[in-house]
Design a protein around this nucleic acid. Structure first.
Lengths: 192, 192
DNA sequence: TTATTTTAACTAATGTAATTAGTAAAGTCA
DNA sequence: TGACTTTACTAATTACATTAGTTAAAATAA
């Protein structure tokens, strides 16, 4: 009977996934929870703040899943595994992902911090590829860019043909990693 | 004194660029035009429809600029030139670009058609690279993904350091194209 | 257990914005 | 000129988000 902040966020996220971000309203959330709209203000500051919480929760969950996916792997393998996990989350939670994109434009420092955690994971994995560390930021920008752009543009197909899109993403990452290797691999021959 | 549909869209697009998509309201647009809010309904069907028109206009303008940028060029050069043009438009019109992203989720058939025109341009350019035509769709998905993702994620830096980001994008495209060449180049030796 | 404090619900009221209906003036065309 | 269309207007409706003030239940401390 008693509702927690976490309940509110979960309910809102479910509405986003089912009906899209534009159908998330305090009214709809309150109805789902069987309380009156103003009661939500005991848990949240505003609709905007709620949307940010949805995004932050989603980003954190993604980060956790991606870390799990990377365990026991290094190099290209690890990066591709993380990429597939990223895509899978989008397929499972399109509404949350839409909210995350919204937060790209309406984010706060907190948003930036969570994104940094994601960058930090990818950085560790990229370094395990033995790329020249000098270029690591360049490489990171490219990897995050591909991942975000590719998955976003393929999402519409991902619902009907998830396996095809997963395979295609893996192949696309192979291609990009090939380019990165060609350009940024450390040449250790100097020490022979 | 008399207002046209085009005026309405332009005004709304300007507000988006100056104050962000979330500040585009019929009220704000009407005030900018010095008319009453309901009068806007003589030109548009709804707020949503207006936002879609902003996006469509922007996409068409981008397509035109990219075609211009590709004239007289082929191969990697042409693709990089188009990419820089894409980035430049985003820097100039962040609000319109935000609306275009919104239209990714709330688009219609029309939205798809305009996007197809963009794909068609890139396809022509990609074919001028002498990649194996069999893989052209794969290549296209990768190129559009990189372009969209990379520019979106770098946009925040692009306002303060546009030249750096432009150079970085060009370099990122080089890397991706290197990977694509390695994997998909036609080997014409067969005919020797 | 009892008293105190906090939490989280409620109703009532306000303000903003989108949308619809109905109307009048100004421009277009026969 | 007269019929018709376009585009503006005012008035009214609706849907939300948000604030204020109140109350009852739950949590905590004595």
């Amino acid at each position: 009977m008693r509702i927690t902040k976490s309940d509110v966020i979960q309910t809102a996220a479910d509405i986003a996934d089912k009906n899209g971000l534009s159908n998330v309203s305090l009214k709809a959330v309150a109805e789902s929870l069987n309380i009156r709209t103003p009661s939500l203000y005991n848990h949240i500051d505003s609709l905007e703040a709620l949307l940010r919480e949805i995004a932050h929760n989603g980003m954190k969950t993604m980060n956790e899943r991606m870390m799990q996916a990377a365990i026991g792997k290094i190099g290209d393998d690890a990066i591709k595994s993380v990429g597939i996990t990223y895509l899978n989350y989008m397929i499972e939670h399109p509404g949350i992902y839409e909210t995350i994109q919204w937060a790209t434009w309406h984010g706060t420092e907190e948003t930036g911090k969570i994104f940094d955690n994601y960058l930090s994971l990818l950085k560790t994995l990229a370094l395990s590829c033995n790329f020249n560390p000098v270029n690591i930021d360049e490489i990171l920008n490219l990897l995050t860019g591909v991942l975000h752009g590719y998955t976003t543009l393929q999402l519409r197909y991902a619902f009907t043909k998830p396996d095809e899109v997963r395979t295609a993403l893996s192949s696309a990452l192979d291609t990009v990693l090939a380019g990165i290797h060609q350009k940024y691999d450390q040449h250790e021959k100097e020490h022979l």
